[in-house]
Simulated scan of single mutants.
Amino acid sequence: MRLDKFLKVSRVIKRRTLAKEVCDNGHVQVNNRVAKAGLEVKVGDRVEVNFGTRKLVFEILELKETVPAKEAASLYKVIEQ
């Protein structure tokens, strides 16, 4: 699954276009490497998203095309916030 799509499906970022923009501006790292929106992510990847002064680090637990909003947080495990 593409990184920008995962960020949207998991509701880490609400819109896919915004997720793509954040990735392309270098604010997202996957496994300690700067990642573009089209990067294929897999279970076990460690993702770090920088929101200006706030940083979110999480591990991908599951990949799904769609999930209800209540279950979105079950797709990843927060490591650092």
Results as ranks from 00 to 15, higher is better:
K14Q: 12
A72Q: 09
L39I: 15
V41Y: 08
G44N: 08
C23V: 03
V67P: 06
E21Q: 13
K42W: 01
D4R: 02
F51M: 09
F51S: 08
V22P: 00
V57G: 05
T53Y: 02
E65F: 05
D24H: 11
F6R: 04
E40R: 15
I79L: 15
R54I: 12
N32H: 14
E21Y: 02
V47D: 04
R16F: 02
R33D: 07
N32L: 09
F51L: 08
Q29T: 13
R33S: 10
L3E: 05
A37Y: 03
N25D: 14
E21R: 13
Y76C: 08
V43H: 01
K77H: 10
E71C: 01
V9T: 15
N50M: 08
A69Y: 02
E80Y: 14
L7H: 02
E59M: 09
S74K: 15
G52Q: 07
V30Y: 11
Y76P: 04
A19D: 04
E62F: 02
Q29F: 14
E48P: 00
R46G: 00
E48T: 15
R33A: 12
P68R: 10
V22L: 11
E65H: 08
N50Q: 14
V12A: 01
P68F: 02
V41D: 06
K77L: 06
S10E: 04
T17S: 14
G38H: 13
G52T: 12
V28H: 12
D45A: 04
A37R: 01
D4L: 04
S74N: 13
V22M: 12
L3C: 03
I79T: 02
R33H: 11
